[in-house]
Design a protein around this nucleic acid. Sequence first.
RNA 1: GCGCCCUUAGCUCAGUUGGAUAGAGCGUCGGCCUUCUAAGCCGCAGGUCGCAGGUUCGAAUCCUGCAGGGCGCGCCA
Length: 581
Amino acid sequence: MNFFHTFREEVLKAIEKLVQQRILPEGLELDKITTEPPRDPSHGDIATNAAMILSKAATKKPREVGELIAKELKALPFVTDVFVAGPGFINFRLTPDFWFRELETILKEKEDYGASSIGLGEKINLEYVSTNPTGPMHAGHGRVTVMADVLANLLEKVGYRVLREFYVNDAGGQAEKLAQSTYLRYKEALGHKIGEIPEGYYPGDYLKEVGKALAERDGDKWLSVPEGEWLEPFREFSINAMMTMIRKDLALMGITHEVFTSETELRRMGAIDAAIKTLQERGLIYEGVLEPPRGKVIENWKPRKQLLFRSSDFGDDADRPLQKADGSWAYFAGDIAYHYDKFRRGYPNMINVWGADHVGTVKRLTSAVKAITEGKGHLDVILCQIVNFMEGGKPLKMSKRAGTFIEIKEVIDKVGRDAFRFMMISRKNDTHLDFDFKKVLEQTRDNPVFYVQYAHARCHSVMKMAEAIFPKWEETPSGPLELLSDSDEMRLLKLLASWPRQVEIAALAREPHRLCYFLYEIAQQFHMLWNKGKENAVLRFIVAGNNDLTRARLAMVQGVATIIASGFQIIGITPLKEMRE
RNA sequence: GCGCCCUUAGCUCAGUUGGAUAGAGCGUCGGCCUUCUAAGCCGCAGGUCGCAGGUUCGAAUCCUGCAGGGCGCGCCA
């Protein structure tokens, strides 16, 4: 439970009371009233801006309003002090007992601590990966994939029901190119010389096996038939092979999708025609001619009359075409149908996580969703900036053509799934991320993954040591907690108790990176306390001859381990009990 | 030319969605191991939050303009 909510309710109650006594006027704007931790701990544990928000409507000075409200709040349980400060903040100071109770709750709820129901069970469709199934996943895909996966966990933690969905782009030109590339490998497998793989085809070795498998299954029956006959079976076979590879890569990252939706399937079911018809009936499609694109010279540009969707009516910069020159549906048409399908399956709330190179298509799709769902559906697109892969500070050049891009598998083999997942969400999604192979494996404070894991391992090291003194300590971990009286111990307890708030903020902002920073902060506090014990034996966790104090401190240590484990659960990684090999 | 994003300490980045005196890590320098893991901890130094206006009790945060950087700008996917 995020206790800031509880106190906000109390503030609102106090205001309500003052309104009834006609000390404050009616019809106040209460939405902007917040309760949050003050930046400076000397200002107390909770601060509210209520007085400053209300002062204008109350025609009183903020501090005056503050005193009125503060008076009402002094009698609350667990509150030692309420005072007005600065420009008009009302600050609360809470009793130590409040934090001890919170620690007991952590120990009781374990990794569930921090969960909440603010999502109200609302359903969210989270679509991610969205890579062309034309080869194995490469390192660059990792960020989008992990970020979305952690976001899914995070949203579930705060009470949303998330469906993880993968859209398989198995129709269209790229899929055809894949089929044609496989055909070359098929010929090769049957002993034909194919020479260099031509420009535009997929040159990767991984298709050799696919060609070979087809040769074994079908023999040479496709050699002498026209492309029109082999294209479809080759497409289907190679897409399946690619999806098998991709699922393996996803499994390496610890990712499982509940739903895979195939573009080809949608087309077969007539989803595109249905979607286009719907738009047509609403007068949102017309025949027109587009301007040639600016800023880029395109050969063979010919103005052409074609089907256009009125996306500019819904926030896009221009209207967008729905068909290719040959009359077949463009990718966009399929995407409209797909999102309409999600909507009709019961998911008005949709989130897509994409690489930043897709910026250009965000507006057209969000406007299409608005249009086809008549404003009832909402699509939110989260873009992730590119990852700079480096080795000891030197950027690694990656190029698909030169075949020097790094596969996901390779990265995970090298640094492990846990470090990979942690690093991929360690920065805000819209900024660049440096991923240094050397740094991720370093066992120093500079490497956040290690630093947090180390704190967790240390906790367990203490608990293990404690077993010698209390063989059954886990059954009664909490001693008299009031013995935790050092200011740094209190600081740590307060930090632990703010976990539910952190989770909530991260979830609502859809910013998993906040988890990493918070866990780092906890680790930092814990390491500090540990070292204080080194310098001052009185502050050691295990104090010989003082069982009560030891038990109280063990409760705190277990609290730290629990919060870290809880965070790791959301990030999808395993907390370590010891760092030694 | 247009759209989206970014600009905070020497470097890499946080900043509780508008709060009080802007914070970490790295790097520099100086300390702390007979002790639960020194794989760590403490201290010193470092700032015109890109620039200029605006909004208000209050701006790194919101709005406008400008500058610099990134990504994108077929009917590809």
